[in-house]
């Protein structure tokens, strides 16, 4: 039986002085209609602070992916309020939303989603091209970024020639190269072994957190909980608990499992 520690607040308390990167209030999202309606989010309240690594955890189907999709502006909420750096995606036109997302948010996907026919440098350069950077400048910056993650000598290789961990480092480079303020990671270590997953998280913690960026990491992998500043636990479409560490969530014996 897990021993639960007292949770910290999901939202900024009165008198909070930290800047808020993501602010969600009473966010509701349903899929389907009528009797087939699935209530994926039932009124989520959550704040993510600048310079914070927040992990979003919980059982499958609890609404984690739906919540980061709403936060990242790739899915419309049905009700409530959700702002990213003061911008409400639902108040933006489709073009403005796409542009804002391209400038403000970096993505790290579970299955990397690298385009196999492009070199890794070209993959990393995509967000820069979308932000109007010339191809040569974008490739140069992409190569510099790959050097930071330790892949500077493999910039012209195809992604499928790299190991899973290396591919995820490429994906992290792609997420960071255009210097976004918010990074959204969906199960970044689930396809990796323990050691590689640990290295990826070290990289995210060390490189991505620089510059006062915020990270939201959706994960099932309790081996990486220690990298979090806060852990938001979701169940049945709501954030039911936010804790400061893994041991607060599962107790001291479960934290390292």
């Amino acid at each position: 039986m897990t021993t639960l520690a007292p949770s910290v607040s999901a939202i900024a308390p009165e008198g909070n002085t930290r800047r808020i990167a993501v602010r969600c209030r009473s966010v509701i999202k349903n899929y389907g209609v009528g009797n087939a309606t699935v209530r994926a989010l039932r009124g989520v309240d959550l704040d993510v602070f600048e310079g914070e690594l927040l992990m979003l955890v919980g059982p499958s189907g609890c609404g984690k992916t739906t919540l980061i999709s709403v936060i990242a502006g790739v899915l419309d909420r049905d009700e409530g309020d959700c702002q990213v750096y003061g911008k409400d995606f639902s108040a933006l036109s489709s073009g403005q939303r796409t542009r804002f997302r391209g400038q403000t948010i970096g993505f790290v996907f579970q299955s990397f989603n690298l385009i196999p026919t492009l070199t890794i440098a070209e993959n990393v350069s995509v967000p820069l091209l979308l932000n109007g950077v010339s191809r040569n400048a974008a490739l140069k910056k992409a190569k510099d970024m790959l050097a930071v993650v330790g892949l500077g000598d493999r910039v012209n290789e195809a992604p499928n020639r790299l190991s899973g961990g290396q591919q995820q480092r490429v994906a992290i480079s792609r997420a960071l190269v255009h210097d976004p303020k918010l990074i959204v990671c969906d199960e970044p270590t689930s396809a990796l072994d323990h050691e590689t997953g640990h290295k990826v998280m070290e990289l995210l913690r060390g490189v991505a957190m620089s510059g006062n960026r915020s990270l939201i990491v959706v994960t099932h992998d309790n081996r990486i909980f220690n990298f979090a500043d806060r852990i938001a636990h979701m169940d049945d479409g709501v954030v039911d608990k936010v804790v400061g560490s893994a041991k607060d969530l599962y107790g001291p014996n479960m934290a390292a499992k």
């Binding site: 790739v74 073009g95 796409t98 993505f107 989603n113 995509v126 967000p127 979308l130 932000n131």
Partner: peptide, 18 residues
């Protein structure tokens, strides 16, 4: 076959016209 990649590109901020 490339739908996932197009989805990723859209998530990364590629406009529909591109």
């Amino acid at each position: 076959d490339n739908l996932r990649h197009f989805g990723a590109l859209k998530a990364l901020g590629t406009p529909n016209k591109t």
